[in-house]
Each structure stands twice: as C-alpha cells, then as structure tokens.
C-alpha cells in the first residue's frame, strides 16, 4: 500500500517536473539606454543624472544591459555612448563591472561640457537600435533632458522613427524661462513628444520629474 502511494507521488512529481522544466526561451533580462542632455544650461543638471545612473547600477541584475549616451548637436552616433555594459551572469563579476561603469561615469561628469544644439531624436534612434541589438525582454530609454529639441540647419530629423516595444521615460524635464511665461508651451512640448513617441510604437511613455521616486522608472 505504501509502495503504491509512493509511486503515485513520484508520478505526480515527475509530471509537475516535466511541465516546469520546459525552459522558457523568452529573454527575462532588461536593457536600459539613458540619454543625458548636455546642451546649454541643462549641462549643470548632470549631477542628478549621475544619481540616476547610480540608482540603475544598484537596481539592474546580472544579464541586464546598460548604456549611457550624451545628447549633443548630433546624437545619432556610437561615439556619443559614454559607457555601455552587459552585466555578467555571476553576481561577483557583475559587481566589478558596475564599479568600472561608475568610474567611467564619474570621469564623464567631471569633464562634461555644453553643446550648442540638442538632438534628442538622433539619440532616440541610436538608443532604439542599441536596445534591439541586446535582445533583452524589457527595453527602456531614459531621457534626462528638458525635452527642448534644437537642431542645426543641416540636421534632418523630421521623419517617423521606430521605437517598437520600448518604454520611454522622460526624467527631470525642467521648465524653461519661456515655460514660466506661458505654461502651455511646457504642456504642449510634452504632449508633442508623447504623441511622437507613441506614434513610433513605444509601449509606454512616462514622465518622472521627482528623482526621489525613481522606482517607477524600471517597472513594467
């Protein structure tokens, strides 16, 4: 009688195991691409960006990817990527990579200089391409900017872009002097970006101005 019971239990556990051991082929990692606006007066906000990067380094896990790029006159270039990393599957190695990444960002913060124009669209296209290459399950672009795009005459960015299945988070979108005169300009700017991002196929558009609440940043 006991043997029969044990056999039944074994069969049930084998069945459960066979169901659960089907390896999940989907990617469970996440990739984050952060754009830092270094144009004009916004370059002074780079200290806040550093805090956000440190938060990301503390939050991202083994297997996740992180890249930080600057937004300047023309941002559609790999050269604008300050640092990028895919964390090792071993936690100890991942910690070492995080330390090295932090050192790179520290060096960048010390040497950052302002740019004449702000090419957010170029940075978004570059970010989208980078994230798609990582093959991560969850992809996020963080835009640390006032969202005021200014392009020189030669730069062409008025075409549809592709940000399919990518979350876009605008961080620390500060109000400009002109916004203070007419707040509708600020609202309109954000609305225009939201429309453009959603039209590009992004899965979500989020605005976080208070960097004390960064936990929403990586939530899916």
């Amino acid at each position: 009688m006991g043997a029969i019971m044990v056999k039944r239990l074994l069969l049930a556990s084998l069945l459960g195991l066979s169901v659960s051991t089907c390896t999940d082929q989907r990617s469970h990692t996440q990739a984050v691409y952060m754009l830092i606006d270094t144009s004009g007066t916004y370059a002074a906000e780079v200290g806040k960006a550093q805090r956000i990067i440190n938060y990301l380094l503390g939050t991202l896990q083994s297997g996740d990817s992180l890249a930080v790029a600057r937004v300047k006159t023309r941002s559609f270039s790999e050269k604008d990527i300050i640092a990028k990393v895919t964390f090792d599957s071993r936690p100890s190695q991942a910690n070492a990579q995080k330390r090295a990444f932090r050192d790179k960002i520290d060096a960048f913060v010390k040497s950052v200089g302002g740019s004449a124009y702000t090419d957010i669209t170029g940075g978004l296209i570059q970010g989208g391409m980078f994230l798609n290459e990582t093959g991560a399950g969850r992809k996020t672009i963080l835009i640390f900017s006032d969202m005021q795009e200014e392009l020189d005459k030669l730069t062409i960015r008025d075409f549809p872009i592709n940000l399919k299945d990518i979350r876009v988070v605008a961080l620390n979108v500060v109000k400009l002097k002109t916004d203070n005169i007419d707040p509708r300009r600020y609202m309109g700017r954000l609305e225009a970006w939201q429309k453009r991002i959603e039209k590009a196929g992004a899965s979500e558009w989020i605005l976080i101005n208070d960097i004390e609440h960064l936990d929403r940043m990586l939530q899916s």
Binding site: D24, R90, A94
Partner: peptide, 18 residues
C-alpha cells in the same frame, strides 16, 4: 540560492519567474 547564481549564472530562467 545566491551563491548558486554565481555557479550556474543568474540570467537563465526556466519559467518567467523561476
């Protein structure tokens, strides 16, 4: 569990949460 992730890697998933 944590030291095992050092041995077999922390990025492999059997199911969405496992």
């Amino acid at each position: 569990a944590l030291p095992f992730s050092e041995m077999v890697g922390a990025g492999d998933y059997l199911t969405s949460t496992l």
